[in-house]
Design a protein around this nucleic acid. Structure first.
Lengths: 84, 84
DNA sequence: AAAGTATTTAGATATTTGACTAAATAACTA
DNA sequence: TAGTTATTTAGTCAAATATCTAAATACTTT
């Protein structure tokens, strides 16, 4: 659970998830959405990957990122447990 | 959303929520569950309060804390939006 | 009023985090 | 193969975080 909460505890990373919800994008396209350097975005992507919230697959020169929402099921469970 | 994610991004604070799920407790009782100083627990309680995840009501010398799960509805919505 | 208990506030310190620039790696293109 | 593009890794720095001890505040009890 820890890497998941950690990954979600940043507005930039949450926005990355929101833009990936609509469409897979490569690292450069993701970086273009933000006013932050590419290395910083790369770091955010790394944290999201560590939490399994995204997956990156190399397509030639590019790395295409997709969201993976299945990890959030644990989070949903945890919240619902607290609410019951 | 930010203070919510921030508050949840700590194992001690998540455990505080879990023990408050079962039963309201005062600050001292909460502190007794952990191997951490009372001032540190007080700080964690403050962050949880800022996120409206708990409420504290003074009962004489004690402050009784209760969980408030309604704030998590926004979080649930956010997660479900990403999953749809 | 003085002493004791419960909790928070203040101040200090070590660790973590998010950002940057510069350099490294990997793949494509001429 | 040399140059260009995409992305990550390395190293640095400032700001944020989690912890501690000591002191302050607030209530209760004697």
């Amino acid at each position: 659970m820890n890497p998941l909460f950690k990954a979600l505890n940043d507005p930039t990373r949450r926005e990355i998830l929101e833009i990936l919800k609509d469409k897979d994008l490569n690292a450069g396209e993701i970086a273009d959405h933000f006013d932050i350097s590419k290395p910083s975005i790369s770091h955010h992507l790394d944290l999201l990957k560590r939490a399994s919230l995204i997956t990156g697959t190399k397509e030639g020169q590019f790395i295409n990122y997709s969201i993976n929402t299945t990890v959030m099921d644990d989070l949903l469970q945890w919240i619902l447990k607290l609410k019951s």
